[in-house]
Design a protein around this nucleic acid. Structure first.
Lengths: 348, 348
DNA sequence: TTGAAAGCGCTACCAA
DNA sequence: TTGGTAGCGCTTTCAA
C-alpha cells in the first residue's frame, strides 16, 4: 500500500535503480533528474522499506536494550540517554524488561538476536556467562552495562562500583561516623564492588567492619529493596555497638533503612547517618533528604550508545572496551553532621 | 553468517519450502521429516530472519511507542506493561521519547512509519491533529494514550480525567476543606479534564472556585512541574482567603506545593491539605506522605497493548475504541484531616 | 507429502 | 549518467 521505488520509477519513466541512487545521495545522477525525483518523493511522502533494506544490507539500524526493570529510574534514565544518542544517528531502540528474571532475559536476548539488531546492550540479571556465549556465536556485538561478570571479556560501561563504596564510606567517616555499617545487595558485581569499596575505605582509615555490621538485603520479595532495607536496618540497630552510619546498597534500601531508624526513635543523621546509591529523583522531598552516590546514569547511557554506534559500524570484532564512570557523592541532610561547607550538593 | 533455511535444506537434502513449512508448523509434512528438521534446527540454533519474513508478509511483529518522557514513572510504567503483554504474543516494542517536543515527536512517528511497525501507540505532545492524519494516510493503526484530542476520531486509552479531578476535589471537601484551590497543568486534555472535574465537584457541593484559586503551573522550565508547583503554591498562599486544600495537576507539582507550604510554616494537612495525581513510587517516604489519585498506569498499558494486538491482526479498519480507566484516590497524610477510617490506602 | 517458481522492496555490480 | 540483472531469506501458490 505505501509508495515503492518502483511506483516513482514508473511515474517518472526512470528505472528503480536511478530512484534508489537519488534516495541514497549517490553522486552519479544528473542534477535535473535528481530534482524531479526528490520532488516526487516528497509529494508522495515516500518512506523506504526498512525490511527490504535490512535484507539486502544486513543492517537493521536498530539497537536492542534489555534492562531488569524499566520502572527503576536508573534504567529509565539510561534508556532515555541511549535513545537520544541513537536517534541522532538514525538508529531506533528496541527495549525490553527482564524483570530480573534470568530466563526471561535469555528469551529476550534471543528475540533480539532473531531480529538481527546491530548491537545488544544489556544490564544483565544472569548468574552465569553462558548466554553471552550465545550472543558471541551469532557474532552480534554486545555491551554490558551496570553489571559485569568475572572472566568474561566483554564490552562494559558502568560506574566504578568500588569507588562508589569507598566514596560513600569515606564520606560517612569524614562526617564523624566511627561505626559504619553496610547493607549489601545480592551477589552481582555492583553489590560486590560496593562492598569491596566499603571495606577498602574503612581500611584506609584504620577501621574494620564490626561484627554483624555487614548485613544482606536478602530477597524479601520487594522489588527494589525498600522492605529489605527496613529489615536489614532493624537488625543493625539491635546490635551492640550500634552503627552510627549506614551505607546502603541502593536508594530504595536506604529509604527502608531510614524508616527503620525513625521508627526506632533515633535521629538522622545525628544518631545514625545514611547514604544510599543511585541519587534518584525527588530526594529533596523525602522526610529526611537522602544523601546518595550518583552513578551518572545519563553518562552511562551516552557512553554505551556511543560505543554501540562504533560497534555497529565495524566489520571486524575489536578489542573489548571497558568504561568506568566516576561516581560522586551528593550530600543531603541524611549524612550532613558537620556544618555545611563547600562540599554540599555541588561537589564534582 | 547466521544459519538460513537453505543451509538446513542442503544439509538434509530437502527443499527450502519443506523446512519453511516445518518452521511454521504446517500440517502436510511427514512426521519423520519434521523430526529430522526440528532436530537440526535446534542444533544449529536456527533463528528465522525477521527482515525477510516482514518483507514477504508485510508484518513486522513490532509495536511502536512514543512517550513524552521515559523517566516519568507514569510512562515508564505504561511502557513496561505494554512490553509484557506484547512479548507474550511475540511482539517487540520500539520505544522513543519525544521530550515533550511536538516536532521531535513527529519525526519519531515518521521513523516508526518508515519501519512499518504494526501499530503505533503514542502519548502525544502535539497541539494540532495534523500529524495523526499522516499516520492515517499510511493506514497504520494507532492508539492515543493518556492525552486525547477533540474532534479526532482515534483509538484512545487513558484515565477518565474528569473523574480524577472530581475524585480529588470531593475527597478534599469531605476532609473538611472549604476553599479548595487547583494548580492546573498546561493546555492538554489531561489538565483540562482534571480542571473540569474539579469545577464539577465543587459545584456538586454548592461551592465555587474562589477568585485566584485556579493557578497555572506555567512552563517554568522544570521538567515535570516541581518548581512550577512551588511557585504556584506560593501565589496561592498569598491570596486572601487562603486555600485550605490544593488539588495539584500531578505529583511533582504537589511536591513543589508541599515545599512551599512547609516553607511558609504552615502545616499539612491541618492548614492546607494537598492531593496530587499519579501516585508515584516512594510516596510513603516523603516528608509528608502525599495523597494522590492513582491513574492505573499499568491498566492503561495493558489495555493499550491488548487493543494494539487486536488492531495488528485486523485487515480492515475498525471503529475507534475509547477506553477510560477509572481512577482511585490513595489517601495518605497530606490530606488526612479526619481520623483514619476504613478508607485509607486500601480503598478500591 | 514434497518442491519448483515467483516475488516481497531494495541494493550491488557491471554493462551500456 | 543511466539501467539491466541478480540476489538478500523468506513465504505463497500450485504442480508433481
Amino acid at each position: 500500500m505505501p509508495t515503492r521505488l518502483k511506483d516513482i520509477a514508473n511515474e517518472l519513466g526512470l528505472s528503480v535503480v536511478t530512484i534508489s541512487k537519488v534516495l541514497r545521495d549517490h553522486p552519479d545522477i544528473g542534477a535535473e533528474t535528481r530534482k524531479r525525483v526528490l520532488k516526487r518523493m516528497r509529494e508522495l511522502n515516500y518512506q523506504p522499506n526498512f525490511a527490504a533494506r535490512s535484507l539486502v544490507s544486513g543492517k537493521t539500524w536498530t539497537l536492542g536494550l534489555v534492562v531488569p526493570d524499566l520502572l527503576h529510574p536508573f534504567f529509565a534514565d539510561v534508556a532515555k540517554s541511549i535513545s537520544v544518542v541513537a536517534r541522532r544517528q538514525g538508529y531506533s531502540l528496541l527495549i525490553s524488561s527482564s524483570d530480573e528474571d534470568p530466563d526471561l532475559e535469555v528469551r529476550e536476548i534471543k528475540q533480539l538476536l532473531a531480529r538481527r539488531v546491530d548491537v545488544i546492550i544489556v544490564a544483565s540479571a544472569q548468574s552465569s556467562v553462558e548466554c553471552f556465549r550465545l550472543i558471541e556465536e551469532q557474532k552480534t556485538p554486545y555491551i554490558l552495562i551496570d553489571r559485569r561478570f568475572r572472566g568474561l571479556d566483554a564490552n562494559f560501561v558502568g560506574v566504578d562500583d568500588e569507588a562508589v563504596g569507598a566514596l560513600a564510606t569515606s564520606h560517612l567517616i569524614e562526617q564523624g561516623c566511627r561505626r559504619v555499617a553496610h547493607i549489601r545487595g545480592p551477589e552481582v558485581s555492583t553489590a560486590v564492588g560496593r562492598l569491596e569499596g566499603y571495606k577498602r575505605a574503612l581500611g584506609s582509615y584504620g577501621l574494620m567492619p564490626l561484627p554483624g555490621h555487614i548485613v544482606s538485603l536478602g530477597a524479601s520479595g520487594d522489588h527494589r529493596g525498600e522492605k529489605g532495607g527496613y529489615e536489614a536496618a532493624k537488625r543493625l540497630l539491635s546490635i551492640k555497638p550500634r552503627p552510627d552510619g549506614i551505607f546502603c546498597f541502593n536508594d530504595p534500601s536506604a529509604l527502608g533503612a531510614m524508616r527503620a531508624i525513625l521508627d526506632a526513635r533515633l535521629r538522622i543523621p545525628q544518631d545514625v547517618a545514611v547514604v544510599g546509591c543511585g541519587n534518584l529523583s525527588y530526594s529533596d522531598f523525602l522526610r529526611v533528604p537522602l544523601s546518595s552516590v550518583d552513578q551518572g546514569s545519563d553518562k552511562i547511557g551516552k557512553c554505551a550508545a556511543d560505543l554501540a554506534l562504533v560497534l555497529a559500524n565495524r566489520k571486524v570484532r575489536i578489542k573489548s572496551k571497558v568504561e568506568l564512570i566516576s561516581p560522586r557523592v551528593v550530600v543531603r541532610a541524611s549524612s550532613q553532621r558537620i556544618p555545611i561547607s563547600a562540599q554540599a550538593d555541588s561537589v564534582s
